[in-house]
């Protein structure tokens, strides 16, 4: 094989990887912002990007000292700032969601497994602190029937003090594929939602590629998790 060809294609390959990483993060950020529930942590992507950001940070610092064209340095700095903004914003939305739905996430294995290692640690300390705080400030002063963190009172059947994400929220979404037979009603949901079961069954819904839709998140949740639908 011609050595030059080989180099060229690796270079192209690397360019492709690099372009996609920021694009991928931007997509993950958009999804995370738009989805009502917490999505799977992009472990590999974040690891790759953190590495790149650290590398560029060092380079920028060196360049600034070694007297390279200040314009070039400032452009690198801007690029760095943009990537860091995306990364920070992505992590921050996730922390907000974790704080908000902490009891629900910790009680649901599926959701808990979506967190990164650090997020899991955060969730646990957060839980301990929150429990302690609620206990000391309010719960310990209430009659014993009302001391649960999860329930309004002992007679509540469900954990009705646990905040859960509203999966019925309407989201704006688009797909690159043609998706037929999306069932908009939640049949698989079981008898918990009586109202939905009473409703006449609707025809399955089709999504055309590259068209924006307002859809209930629950109906397309599966496709979002599979990465076939983008949220906007």
């Amino acid at each position: 094989m011609d050595a030059r060809d080989g180099d060229g294609s690796t270079e192209e390959y690397e360019t492709l990887i690099q372009t996609t990483d920021v694009e991928l993060l931007k997509r993950a950020w958009r999804q995370e912002k738009a989805a009502p529930e917490i999505l799977k942590f992009e472990t590999d992507l974040i690891a790759r990007l953190t590495g790149q950001i650290e590398l560029v940070e060092e380079n920028v610092e060196q360049d600034a000292q070694s007297g390279i064209d200040p314009l070039t340095v400032s452009l690198y700095q801007m690029d760095l700032d943009r990537s860091q903004f995306l990364l920070r914003s992505y992590l921050r939305i996730r922390l907000q969601k974790i704080e908000k739905y902490i009891f629900h996430i910790l009680a649901t294995a599926e959701l808990y497994n979506r967190l990164s290692k650090q997020e899991k640690a955060f969730a646990k300390t957060c839980l301990v602190d929150l429990e302690k705080h609620l206990e000391e400030s309010v719960l310990s002063k209430l009659p014993s029937n009302y001391q649960s963190i999860f329930k309004q009172s002992m007679i509540s059947e469900e954990n009705d003090m646990v905040a859960k994400p509203q999966l019925d929220t309407f989201v704006v979404c688009k797909t690159n594929y043609y998706l037929g037979h999306i069932q908009l009603e939640d049949n698989e949901d079981g008898p918990s939602d009586d109202r939905a079961n009473q409703r006449p069954l609707e025809e399955p819904f089709e999504m055309e590629p590259d068209v924006l839709y307002f859809v209930r998140y629950k109906a397309i949740k599966r496709f979002v998790e599979e990465g076939r639908i983008d949220l906007f």
Partner: peptide
């Protein structure tokens, strides 16, 4: 009614 609205 179909709980999905197209906004092309």
């Amino acid at each position: 009614r179909s709980s999905a609205v197209k906004v092309k």
